[in-house]
Design a binder for these strands. Structure first.
Lengths: 356, 356
DNA sequence: CTGAAAGCGCTTACAG
DNA sequence: CTGAAAGCGCTTACAG
């Protein structure tokens, strides 16, 4: 075993009968090498299968061309989709990606993770963990900037931090305004867990839309879910009890909306003639719910891309490779996707949903 | 800018008035350090916020404690769930994870990716890309073993390679046997893309079950999908036309099953009284489809964990840290999850699906 | 118990 | 156009 040996520049130099500097010049495409020398070296390189060590280069250049991403909840559509965007742009900009998943995003020991990332010389960090409860407390007193450029996803803007978020509040407003525009007047909400910043933002949007329309937005119209379809089911049952005049519901994600739809089918006492339903996320499945779900689409891939893009600019500025840029936080706008679930009498509809 | 400076061992040594060796001994918990020296050094370390460079250590030890994972399709449940398992076990074993996503898993230039991973000194690679068409051709002629330990997920076993897979064939059989046991006799299938090895395995299981029961498994019972709900819809429509006596259907994943369910609702000409439906994957949503979907659950987290576990053993053997182990390929067994969609007359059911 | 020397794989001045 | 020397941050023998 372990006949596995890394070919080094020294071996290449030796085999080609030149110094390591010359090999280095060839690798890095420097012009100051005699054409035949270059050719000879190149031949030896491909013959030996020489691969320059990025690790050694990191040590010299004090730059690893590696980014660290800290994420969580990859079993949900939002986080995994965001990660795809992050990875894509990371690669496009020539970086490698170190992945860290939190299993307890509210409580996990953040210190240890950052330390590991720093010991690996990452050039920057993407903090893709949702803001939950007090899980930003570790930011207090820390002077992160002095350690490494870092960009945050989906959290409340804070002075001194660069944050890229979806405008969840706007999303909640879009969903609710749509329902109002279609004649619904008694609109309940199943929120996400309310210690999530994003959940509160969506609820805020819901409330603003109702108030702007002069409609009630009372406590009995609100139920808290936990993003799961099961909590959507519990939510709708509770709402039916405490808000019987309800004629529409904004579920804060598509899974919970799905739970609502199934429950309506199962109960089939009062509806389903006239309960409007809007979700949030536009997961690929939602177009095939029964009825097809009206929902709010978030530009998640774009979110990941822009985060990496900005982080890269911060890094470059740090290395003085680019102009000094002012780094503002950014909000990306979600979009409403209208389908059958928010149109009156969808349950009777059949031509509406027919595809060819 | 760039007042950001990494604290080095030299600075710590200087500040503590000792040599770098002594600092090194303290960091690595060596016993041969005078108690007061140790204390003094430790204090300087935490005061300065010194973080030993994993990069420098990699160079010396010829071991990075980093694994590379090459994956794809993270927007689907299977791949992202598998990644969660991989990351979890990677962390548990003290490794870091370098993530590479392929955007064109059938054609992408694999050489470049492996080269990058090798230049980053990964200790091992997890190849979590499904086997599609000829996308294992690059294995030919390569002596990967000589480069780095590598483990493959979900592909046809090949001599000399270590592979960990879900037993998709068994899964297809489970699904079909279940339908047969519940009285269905004319069972169609919507397969995944047939250039996927996993799709073919699931179809094989379907066929075996039918043949074992003396039931027909003819070409007109088979339609090829592409994993999307939309292709499920197209699939069921085609099947209805070419296999009109069909009374049940095995959709090779839950998304396609969802497309089937919605289409049945939309058409509502012949059924839905009596079409049994079974999916594959057990995505969290499937319990809330209408009707709740019977499906086949794959132990994906476990798949990821076991892959990393085995890879780690291969690495240790390579470094002669452990005994020489014989590395067999492994099949993990999926399990059937029975819900309403495969029980007669589910569409009339309501008490069945009632939850409290 | 402690430290001067050499080296991991590479690159950056510097000298010729 | 080319190479000997020094160094990135750390550790491993080796000597005391």
């Amino acid at each position: 075993m372990a006949t596995r040996r890394r070919i080094t520049i020294t071996q290449v130099a030796h085999a080609a009968g030149v110094s390591t500097q010359t090999v280095s010049r060839v690798i890095n495409d420097r012009p100051d090498v005699a054409p035949d020398t270059r050719l000879r070296v190149q031949r030896v390189i491909s013959q030996l299968g020489y691969r320059p060590s990025a690790i050694a280069r990191t040590l010299i250049h004090q730059r690893s061309h590696t980014l660290g991403v800290v994420a969580t909840g990859l079993d949900y559509y939002g986080p995994s989709h965001t990660l795809v965007g992050i990875e894509k742009q990371t690669r496009a900009l020539g970086y490698s990606l170190l992945l860290d998943l939190l299993h307890h995003p509210e409580t996990e020991d953040v210190e240890r993770i950052i330390n590991r990332l720093l010991s690996l010389h990452v050039d920057g960090i993407i903090w893709a963990v949702p803001e939950i409860g007090n899980n930003r407390a570790w930011l207090q007193g820390k002077n992160l900037h002095l350690l490494v450029p870092i960009i945050f996803l989906s959290m409340e803007p804070r002075p001194g931090l660069v944050v890229v978020s979806i405008d969840n509040r706007r999303g909640g407003r879009l969903a609710t305004e749509h329902l109002i525009a279609h004649g619904y007047r008694h609109i309940g909400i199943i929120t996400g867990p309310l210690d999530w910043w994003e959940s509160r933002q969506r609820r805020l949007g819901w409330r603003e839309a109702l108030e702007a329309a002069g409609l009630p937005a009372a406590e009995n119209q609100v139920v808290e879910g936990n993003w799961s379809a099961a909590s959507g089911e519990q939510g709708i049952r509770r709402l039916l009890a405490q808000f019987p005049q309800m004629d529409a519901i904004f579920a804060s994600n598509d899974q919970m909306a799905l739970g609502v739809l199934q429950t309506i089918h199962n109960i089939r006492s009062r509806f389903p003639e006239d309960l409007g339903v809007v979700g949030f996320d536009n997961i690929p499945e939602s177009a095939y719910f029964w009825p097809a779900l009206t929902t709010v689409e978030q530009p998640l891939i774009k979110l990941g891309c822009i985060a990496v893009e900005k982080l890269s600019q911060m890094i470059d500025a740090d290395f003085q490779l680019g102009a000094e840029i002012h780094h503002d936080s950014v909000y990306l706008q979600p979009e409403l996707v209208v389908r059958d679930s928010s149109l009156f009498h969808w349950s009777k509809a059949s031509p509406i949903s027919m595809k060819t």
